[in-house]
Design a binder for these strands. Sequence first.
DNA 1: CTCGTAGTACGTCGAATGTCAAACTACGGC
DNA 2: GCCGTAGTTTGACATTCGACGTACTACGAG
Lengths: 120, 120
Amino acid sequence: MTPAATAAGTRELPHPTRAEIRLEGVLHALSDPVRLSIVRDLAADSEALFACSHFDLPVTKSTTTHHFRVLRESGVVRQTYRGTAKMNGLRRDDLDALFPGLLDALLAAAARQAAAVRSG
Amino acid sequence: MTPAATAAGTRELPHPTRAEIRLEGVLHALSDPVRLSIVRDLAADSEALFACSHFDLPVTKSTTTHHFRVLRESGVVRQTYRGTAKMNGLRRDDLDALFPGLLDALLAAAARQAAAVRSG
DNA sequence: CTCGTAGTACGTCGAATGTCAAACTACGGC
DNA sequence: GCCGTAGTTTGACATTCGACGTACTACGAG
């Protein structure tokens, strides 16, 4: 069934093209603490791909799916299937090309705030 | 009536302290197109204070009030009364201290996106 | 084929968001 | 004191959001 989807053993997921990524959408995606923490984890090892299940999130599976979809549809992450796992990677190249310095500034800001919270 | 509020001819408005400003709140505030455009206008003349009525926004007065409140409560702008007008200024000093480089990266990103949209 | 694991889809729920209109308050000028 | 301008408040409304549970599909291992 659904032969096209199973063609190469990987279902395809819709991603916005680089030109379709909107700043407002990126900011909205990152304005949620759960999603911001996902992106921070992803950025810590920038080339790595992590499965959804690798993140230890304080929400259920279905909510996790929802958050990853928001991140994908806003253009922040790229998702690909690998067997039964869905691998997630930051779209750093696209984001850096569209908004130079923004991702680094955001990550630095998040790190700073996390440090402030820990010590305060 | 309300003598405290009228004391110096200026009602006081609640602002978060620098330490209370949350990155998520700032990102959420800027993820709305109307508010992002306000901040861009404000940043164009960084030291200037503009009255709410100086912005030409595609929404009604009450919605404008709402958006300015979101910006104020998230710590993005500082609002002070001057007679019957409410003056708005970017809290650039606080934002730069908390999240160095973030505001500039955001403004640059917004400018880039606006330019891309204009040129097709 | 069967089972377990990874993730999706769907429906629901409560809270927040963006918008408006209408009635109201505050200040400055006449 | 009165009026007009600037902005607020309130209440309504539709939409979206974040969260959940349950039922489902997809893949790999055995």
